[in-house]
Design a protein around this nucleic acid. Structure first.
Lengths: 340, 340
DNA sequence: CTGAAAGCGCTAACAT
DNA sequence: ATGTTAGCGCTTTCAG
């Protein structure tokens, strides 16, 4: 009896076990496992089936270590509860699967603040590139991180760093223009706290308002949650009809949802008393009963482009940073209506 | 000049680099890095700050390999677009962070079908335990997987395997009972395809109906998506008032949302023409304009319990499988109303 | 408190 | 086509 039964043992089956079982060298097994040339077809088949029979699982930790160069792609997500990020994830996964790269995921513990340790798990996992959606840190800090491990910034543009994002200025213009077209003049923009590199939507809004000789009104919520938005919207909408805005453009669908709740609790109807535009085109926006007019930033496509950029960055570490901009689209639904 | 500038070099800074820089042994650095006893406070401080200055990052792949026993926890999620899973994730992360275990995440490529390779990335990452939410495979297959790496099943009970789940039978009873209390008699249950271990909700429904001398009507959609539900609901609701159900209990909020869309496109109002109960208490259910009566399975708490169970399983591999059941709660909202 | 030495499972030259 | 050998970065006895 040459090979003791390892089935019940706690130790994992290794390539050596497979090699010993077949009476060949470890190397040969290693070559066979990853389809490298230099193994006869016959041998490869034997090895593969023996490995399977023994319950062998490749230890990628060891493989990566031995390979000496990083091979995995890191993905950082700020928040799993927002399906924009789920869409980005899907896009990334789609691309990486066809490139069979390994994906290591890290999610912010406390969403929506710049978390200095957010990328640490990814650094420790020795990823070769990090797709970040979204970093709220200042650009200088992002460039510093990028020096450690190349970054692909999603949803944001940072000069000198690969960036995949939607044209938020034009998105802001789209939303504001739509409300202007409907006859609204008293239009407010509700957004979250200001972070460098995340101000384009309000810029698009402000510019469009000024071009029409109108006074922009920008309201910042304390955070990016529905509740944060509801809190400030409640104050904003408490004024009598003539004084309060007849339309609000919110920085995200999530914030728009908060505005909806506030409006409802004040007895204001949408779009009767208030027209509302969101941003993201998340799934909930399209729901009957919600019907939120919004700007689609094509999150899944963003994810695909990011995956692509990550793969290319791994291949050509020294190539110049790309800045890919996708055009957003206005999705008109029932939350906006002509004034009066 | 003893230490060449490694800042610009591509190679990562290792413990040896730190040791050499300080003129101490690698071992000492290793001890200091993970706060092991046997290093003077002074030395530790020196080492830590030197490491920081050099830009040292611990390589967990190497650490895990050397440690010889698995240390990471794997988390498998079927779908990121359903915030029940986002909640489960949050709960798991919360517990594991305070245990500072590493979390490796894997998400199904094609949600909502038993994917035979779904856990492979986790196996390859050499995790010590896998939290699975949710596996649709037959129980026998789950037990087989459990033999490789201990599993913690979330949202489902598999005898012989750690299981953390909601009491779905009582959840089904809660939902059905609520509709009966409102005077409904013609109540249908709309669910997804039948998978072993995922039939409790319909069981609760069926039993309750039979106990009241009523005929259960179970409708299976082709999948678990909103669209799948809408398709079958459209047929179900096309009949004239007397013939069609006056209430539907859906297997999930996602499916309930599909029913809503179908009802809307048929011009039926909820709850005027149809009372609707979902399951999950996802965030969207509570939205003004949706107001879906639903059964809360306390997903985040499920996640916490799963994280806890995972930690314990790592510590005591041989302890008997736990089966933890959480009691679901009915959340009454505006999608259900008395008959007539 | 510190250091030397062995080895985790795998890859990748470099033989043969 | 197959085998030999030397590490990858880290942890962990075991001696000083």
């Amino acid at each position: 009896m040459r090979t003791p039964d390892t089935e019940t043992s706690k130790r994992a089956v290794t390539q050596s076990d497979v090699a010993r079982h077949l009476g060949v060298s470890r190397t040969l097994v290693s070559f066979a496992m990853r389809g490298a040339p230099g193994v006869s077809e016959d041998m490869r088949r034997q090895i593969l089936s023996a490995a399977d029979a023994l319950g062998y699982r490749r230890n990628i930790q060891a493989a990566d270590l031995a390979r000496k160069r990083p091979t995995a792609v890191g993905l950082h997500l700020v928040d799993l509860h927002n399906d924009v990020y789920a869409d980005i994830f899907s896009g990334v996964q789609e691309v990486l699967r066809s490139n069979d790269s390994r994906l290591v995921i890290s999610v912010n513990a406390t969403p929506y603040g710049p978390d200095p340790r957010a990328l640490d798990p990814l650094f420790e996992a020795q990823v070769g590139v990090i797709i970040a959606a979204t970093l709220l840190d200042p650009g200088e800090r992002v460039r510093e991180l990028n020096r450690r491990v190349p970054l692909v910034n999603v949803t944001r543009s940072v000069p000198g760093v690969d960036s995949i994002h939607s044209d938020d200025i034009s998105g802001g213009r789209l939303a504001t223009g739509h409300l202007l077209d409907l006859g609204h003049r008293n239009i407010a923009h509700l957004c979250g706290p200001a972070f460098e590199g995340h101000l384009e939507r309000r810029t698009g809004y402000r510019e469009t308002m000024l071009e029409h000789g109108l006074q922009p009104l920008i309201i910042e919520a304390a955070g990016f949650s529905r509740e944060d938005a509801a809190a400030v919207a409640l104050k904003l909408l408490a004024s009598p009809p003539g004084q309060r805005p007849s339309a609000i453009f919110a920085h995200s669908d999530e914030l728009a949802l908060g505005v909806r709740e506030a409006a409802a609790s004040l007895g204001l109807s949408i779009p009767g008393d208030l027209s509302l535009v969101g941003y993201d085109n998340s799934r909930v926006a399209g729901l009957h009963g919600i019907d939120l007019t919004t700007v689609d930033l094509h999150a899944r496509e963003l994810g695909r482009a990011a995956g692509q950029a990550a793969v290319e960055r791994m291949l050509y570490p020294a190539s110049p940073a790309v800045d890919r901009i996708l055009a957003p689209t206005l999705v008109t639904r029932a939350s906006t209506a002509p004034l009066h």
